[in-house]
Design a protein around this nucleic acid. Sequence first.
DNA 1: CTGAAAGCGCTTACAG
DNA 2: CTGAAAGCGCTTACAG
Lengths: 338, 338
Amino acid sequence: MTRISMKDIARELGVSIATVSLVLNGKDKDGRVGKEMAEKIRRKAKEMNYEPNNLARGLRIGVSNTIGLIVADISNLFFANLAFHIQEQAEKFGYSVIITNTNESNLKLEKMITILKNKLVDGFIIVPTEHGESLIQNLVKRNMPVVLIDRYFPNLNVSSVIVDNYNASKKALRCLINQGCRNIGLVIYKSDLQHMLDRKKGYVDELQNAGLYNPALIKEINYSSITDDITIAMESLLSRENEVDGIFFATNTLSMLSIKYMLDMNIKLYEEIKVVCFDKSDAFDFTSLHISYIQQPIAEMGTNAVGLLVEQMKRKSVERKEDEIKIVELQTFLMNVL
Amino acid sequence: MTRISMKDIARELGVSIATVSLVLNGKDKDGRVGKEMAEKIRRKAKEMNYEPNNLARGLRIGVSNTIGLIVADISNLFFANLAFHIQEQAEKFGYSVIITNTNESNLKLEKMITILKNKLVDGFIIVPTEHGESLIQNLVKRNMPVVLIDRYFPNLNVSSVIVDNYNASKKALRCLINQGCRNIGLVIYKSDLQHMLDRKKGYVDELQNAGLYNPALIKEINYSSITDDITIAMESLLSRENEVDGIFFATNTLSMLSIKYMLDMNIKLYEEIKVVCFDKSDAFDFTSLHISYIQQPIAEMGTNAVGLLVEQMKRKSVERKEDEIKIVELQTFLMNVL
DNA sequence: CTGAAAGCGCTTACAG
DNA sequence: CTGAAAGCGCTTACAG
């Protein structure tokens, strides 16, 4: 079966392709095309099962109505949810979304950007990787609409949607302190990404305020050797001399692996050690575990990112030049299951 | 900044666009283009930062190197993982993947198919919705390469990748019976989709073999009123007169909600009621919960789906007509945490 | 109110 | 070994 094109409809009806195009794009009002003609064309199009070829349309008008979404790991529930909401929102504006994955690899980020650019996406929403700054920079230089999400580069002039990571950490720590914890550990990725630095700083500041800061209780995990590093970190935190009575986990993956370790060691959460995690896991619904967590407004993050991007894409086509960079910083919620 | 095209390179070098195209597509070997010329073109292309326009290429050769993946719910970890593996595998064959979501809605499935077709994806991998049979049928009629995954329609002539749901259920039930359960409940979606019917049949058959079948212990949940229905179902299963000592949950979402309910009710898993779930959740790593589960070979499912699809897409371009429909049925694993 | 024509960026026979 | 030309399906001034 071969696809029906405008040409086929035009031939069938003995009219020009131009007329068909006008009608099928709804530009027949304003008296551009006769009423009966328009009706005839529409009927024929439906009858022949016409479907527009968006590739051709895109080539001609230089727009694909597609957004490229690049996340760090689609199999992480946080990003999966983010993707979900971004897609829902994009659809409302008539955009489809191509989702791709970097697995936290800078190389892959570069590759994904190239692939997507060559498919002519109209803009990008990106969860950038560590050291991915220059790749983003390039995109911006070339006037590509871009919005960063979840993570951002403070030195880069790029619209971004993030949460207030610093205060999220502070909230988490205050919660632990209020519950009587005095020796509170931190499990976090070793990373230069700003959102990690912010989470760390929130931890440090809040503990220093309380006169409880002890740098030995900060455990930095390498993403590439995560299992081993967590074992080492937890062994240290759980050793008797540290007297740790609370731990803050800076990401959901770190939480899950560490809590599993603790349960395997028969540690009683809450009674022996209180914990706060970044992000929710399904597991926390099992209330018997007494796990508090920082909840990010995922839907809002997605909506905002799409909003900012759509704005940029419009602006570009109207050729305005004011570079309105916006950093949207959303607040998190401390969900206390106790 | 305006994109560099082949024309720009050709003009700059005083050669024809055709020559540039040949070189940049690696067709300059076989003595089609002079060695120095080819080198010059390649150097210039790099220097000018040329990047191919795949829209134009796709329009010309009728191929987009893009696969449309339609899942039922990207925020469900099972589908997120599936998407991840499909993408990894597709990339190996040079395809990018557009992921979209139906939210189990038939209407949305139709919309997504239309959108993707108009973007000229070369083929589809689809997790179909209930009653979505005719939509898939249409795609096949139009000679579109399609592979169904996770779910399939027995009456439809479409390649599909599924797991052996019937035997998965049987395994789960045997496990519960062997552990001494005598009154075993089933929590499953009310659905005509074959994979659900298979899971149900496995449950029924295995219990009948053991002389333990009791239809009153089957609870069918409506996707649209899931929370309420689960509450009602669990209340009934946990009521004293039923003496339920084991439950099989037919999907991951049903598992999570039901187990949460049980924990809220202070039911001791394993000691009071033993459970087996379909699919793993992060939560099960918390071994203290004693939850067994059926593990699906997600990566293998993804790999197989891409393989079947690529085969179809190739076949189509060579215009062969043997309709080689393949149903790949993979085996699951019963993961017993005890 | 409708049509002829150019062109988006590319590929592919066909000539030479 | 290289170029001129047609055409993929569409949109958009421009004529009339």
